[in-house]
Each structure stands twice: as structure tokens, then as C-alpha cells.
């Protein structure tokens, strides 16, 4: 499995044998607080980079989750519907949102790596 890449909007993406898994970063979940609800796209939907792809809600905030790169929704994490707290517990693992197929590997590797994202986050506080 490849190393995750990050966007400035706090999504992570990880490419594994042609399929990219996307979620929100550990930092993002901490900013959001207790996640209470997730709205996921329908499988088969084609998204462009930057498209609003999902919604994640805490008690006091609703945030849009954007597609880090273009692709087609191959699978969504249906387990989040019953256990949205998974995102708080394991944002960059079992708390994933969406799997995209048909993504451009070069577009993924053009995003921030973990170190660059860490520096970016520390610049925000």
C-alpha cells in the first residue's frame, strides 16, 4: 500500500493497485469534534478534482468533503452510517469515506506528502 497524500482541504488519499481510498485527516476530525453524521455519494458517480463529494457533520458544524483527484466512485464506506464515530477513532484508517477508480496516479503524487501536510497544518494554528 502506498503512503497517503493530503490536500489543503484536509482530505487524505491513498492509491492501492489502481483504486484510491479517500477520507479526512486526523487533524480534520479533531477540528470537527464528535462526528454525528456522514452523507456519502452514490456508487458510479464521476467526480472531478475539487468536486463536493460527501458531507461530514458534527453537532455544530457541517463540512463538505472534496474529491482530491478526478475519478469514479467505486465503493463507499457504508459502515459509517451506523458508526460515524469511526471517523473520530480512526480517521485515516477504518474511517475512510470513498474508494475511487480510474484516478491518475500522477495527480495523486502531486499532492502533499505526510511531512509537507504536517508543516502545512502547523502553519494554520
Amino acid at each position: 500500500m502506498t503512503e497517503p497524500r493530503y490536500t489543503s482541504e484536509h482530505e487524505w488519499i491513498r492509491l492501492d493497485s489502481g483504486v484510491a481510498t479517500v477520507g479526512i485527516s486526523a487533524y480534520a476530525q479533531e477540528q470537527l469534534g464528535d462526528v454525528v453524521y456522514v452523507e456519502l455519494p452514490e456508487v458510479g458517480r464521476k467526480v472531478a478534482a475539487g468536486d463536493n463529494m460527501a458531507v461530514v457533520e458534527s453537532v455544530k458544524a457541517a463540512s463538505e468533503v472534496y474529491a482530491p483527484v478526478a475519478g469514479e466512485v467505486a465503493e463507499v464506506n457504508a459502515a459509517l452510517a451506523d458508526k460515524p464515530e469511526t471517523i473520530n477513532e480512526d480517521a485515516e484508517g477504518t474511517g475512510w469515506f470513498v474508494r475511487l477508480k480510474g484516478v491518475d496516479a500522477a495527480a495523486v503524487s502531486a499532492l502533499m506528502d505526510a511531512d509537507a501536510y504536517k508543516k502545512y497544518v502547523s502553519s494554520l494554528d
Binding site: Q31, G33, K60, E64, V65
Partner: peptide
């Protein structure tokens, strides 16, 4: 991700 949270609002009023 784009969050709409009031600045300074506790992020997780019932956790922490």
C-alpha cells in the same frame, strides 16, 4: 474539507 464552525466554539462540546 471546508468547515463552518464559529471561531472559538468548542469543537466537541461533549467529548474532551
Amino acid at each position: 474539507m471546508s468547515a463552518e464552525t464559529p471561531p472559538g466554539a468548542p469543537r466537541a462540546p461533549n467529548a474532551k
